[in-house]
């Protein structure tokens, strides 16, 4: 029983991972890519680790999977934030069809 539940959760995680990576290839500029990839891959990997927690019977693997999932959930948004800021400060422009860029306007003044 627990094996089937774990497998379903892992399947959801793998599908989210895959669409995140497709977004990484398909979206036009770095900020959109960062959005798609960070959200989908973070939750997808957390789902895979959760499935590993449910499937693996042994206690050490389960606790390690839980710790790893918590760690990824905490650090991945921070890394995305640092990357977006670094990209903007290093001079990467937004996509040409973007609507508004308040950050650029405020940096000029």
């Amino acid at each position: 029983m627990s094996e089937i539940v774990g497998m379903v959760i892992i399947a959801i995680g793998v599908v989210f991972d895959f669409f995140g990576c497709v977004g990484l290839v398909r979206f036009p500029d770095i900020y959109n890519r960062l959005q798609a990839a960070t959200k989908c891959v973070t939750l997808g990997t957390c789902f895979i680790l959760l499935g590993a927690l449910i499937t693996c019977g042994s206690a050490p693997t389960a606790t390690k999977a839980a710790l790893c999932a918590i760690f990824i959930l905490l650090t991945s948004p921070t890394a995305a934030h640092a990357l977006a800021r670094g990209a903007h400060l290093s001079g990467v422009k937004l996509w040409e069809k973007s609507v508004v860029d308040k950050y650029e306007d405020d940096k000029k003044h």
């Binding site: 989210f16 669409f19 995140g20 497709v22 977004g23 398909r26 979206f27 036009p28 500029d29 900020y31 959109n32 959005q35 798609a36 959200k39 989908c40 937004l94 996509w95 069809k97 973007s98 609507v99 508004v100 860029d101 308040k102 950050y103 650029e104």
Partner: peptide, 16 residues
């Protein structure tokens, strides 16, 4: 995100 990735015209309107 899955909806926006799979949609053939990519319905995005980005900005900061």
């Amino acid at each position: 995100v899955v909806y926006r990735v799979l949609h053939p015209e990519m319905p995005i309107k980005p900005g900061i």
